[in-house]
Simulated scan of single mutants.
Amino acid sequence: MGVEWTALHWIYVVFIVLIIGFMVRRRDTTLICILGIFSLALIATGSLAASVSGIFNSFIFAITELMSTILVISIIVAMSQVLTRTGINNVMISPFTRLIKTPALAYWTIGIIMMGISWFFWPSPAVALLGAVLLPVALRAGLPSLGVAMAMNLFGHVCSIK
């Protein structure tokens, strides 16, 4: 059973490659995504008005589906920034600074804490909060930032799968 590739398929693949390319180069992908939606809608409907309407409909759909996620993450990030600016994070991490002395201990400690947090909370906001609090301790112990990210994601997301 074969699938015949149409112009829609090719446009979709081209824009996915463009989006990945922009992400690799650390550029903003917003305009590329909007152009991709517009191009797909223009080819699918053949109408300029329907294409512009498709862009706004996609915004509305994304907002209704992702607003709660965006809200939770923004609140967690704001709270972690308050902790950093007020210096409370130094008080919070002081027990861990005595425990985390080597990169290996930093990896396992952050991973196990992340796993515990992920059992009770959604992992993505927990990563933002835990990263803001424990990243400086792990860096002082010699664990690179990538190692911290790996520990948080492996223990947090994989161990929270139900």
Rank of each mutant, 00 (worst) to 15 (best):
residue 75 I to Q: 05
residue 73 I to N: 11
residue 88 I to W: 09
residue 81 Q to V: 05
residue 126 A to K: 00
residue 122 W to Q: 15
residue 96 F to P: 02
residue 80 S to H: 05
residue 92 M to S: 06
residue 65 E to S: 09
residue 154 L to D: 04
residue 155 F to R: 03
residue 103 P to R: 00
residue 127 V to N: 00
residue 143 L to Q: 05
residue 142 G to E: 08
residue 160 S to E: 14
residue 86 T to D: 03
residue 108 W to L: 15
residue 117 I to E: 02
residue 99 L to R: 04
residue 109 T to V: 05
residue 85 R to P: 04
residue 115 M to Q: 02
residue 84 T to K: 12
residue 112 I to D: 01
residue 140 R to Q: 14
residue 103 P to M: 09
residue 98 R to F: 11
residue 105 L to E: 11
residue 162 K to S: 13
residue 86 T to H: 08
residue 71 L to I: 12
residue 160 S to L: 06
residue 161 I to D: 12
residue 63 I to T: 14
residue 124 S to M: 13
residue 111 G to M: 05
residue 116 G to Y: 02
residue 81 Q to H: 14
residue 66 L to T: 03
residue 152 M to Q: 03
residue 108 W to E: 00
residue 139 L to R: 09
residue 160 S to G: 06
residue 146 L to G: 12
residue 113 I to K: 04
residue 138 A to T: 05
residue 99 L to F: 07
residue 127 V to W: 00
residue 106 A to V: 13
residue 115 M to R: 00
residue 63 I to C: 09
residue 115 M to K: 00
residue 96 F to M: 10
residue 132 A to V: 15
residue 70 I to N: 03
residue 62 A to S: 09
residue 76 I to A: 11
residue 102 T to M: 11
residue 138 A to Y: 03
residue 83 L to I: 08
residue 147 G to L: 08
residue 134 L to Y: 01
residue 91 V to T: 12
residue 107 Y to T: 00
residue 136 P to A: 01
residue 131 G to C: 14
residue 155 F to S: 02
residue 144 P to K: 08
residue 152 M to W: 04
residue 71 L to P: 07
residue 97 T to C: 11
residue 94 S to G: 06
residue 132 A to W: 01
residue 161 I to R: 15
residue 68 S to M: 14
residue 97 T to G: 14
residue 142 G to M: 13
residue 73 I to H: 07
residue 107 Y to M: 07
residue 130 L to W: 01
residue 69 T to S: 10
residue 70 I to T: 11
residue 91 V to Q: 11
residue 103 P to A: 09
residue 65 E to Q: 13
residue 70 I to L: 15
residue 161 I to P: 01
residue 123 P to Y: 00
residue 100 I to S: 07
residue 137 V to L: 09
residue 90 N to P: 00
residue 86 T to F: 14
residue 99 L to T: 10
residue 141 A to T: 05
residue 107 Y to F: 15
residue 160 S to V: 11
residue 87 G to Q: 06
residue 118 S to M: 02
residue 117 I to D: 06
residue 121 F to G: 07
residue 75 I to S: 04
residue 100 I to R: 08
residue 72 V to N: 00
residue 96 F to S: 05
residue 78 A to C: 04
residue 105 L to V: 12
residue 78 A to M: 14
residue 119 W to N: 13
residue 112 I to R: 02
residue 120 F to P: 09
residue 158 V to Q: 09
residue 70 I to G: 03
residue 123 P to T: 00
residue 161 I to M: 10
residue 110 I to L: 03
residue 95 P to F: 02
residue 68 S to V: 14
residue 67 M to Q: 15
residue 88 I to V: 11
residue 108 W to A: 07
residue 119 W to K: 08
residue 117 I to G: 04
residue 140 R to I: 10
residue 138 A to S: 07
residue 84 T to E: 15
residue 120 F to H: 05
residue 108 W to C: 10
residue 149 A to P: 06
residue 85 R to V: 13
residue 111 G to T: 01
residue 157 H to N: 12
residue 106 A to Y: 08
residue 68 S to R: 09
residue 69 T to Y: 07
residue 156 G to Q: 00
residue 123 P to Q: 00
residue 162 K to V: 12
residue 130 L to E: 10
residue 74 S to R: 03
residue 66 L to E: 01
residue 118 S to F: 04
residue 63 I to Y: 14
residue 69 T to L: 10
residue 90 N to T: 11
residue 137 V to K: 02
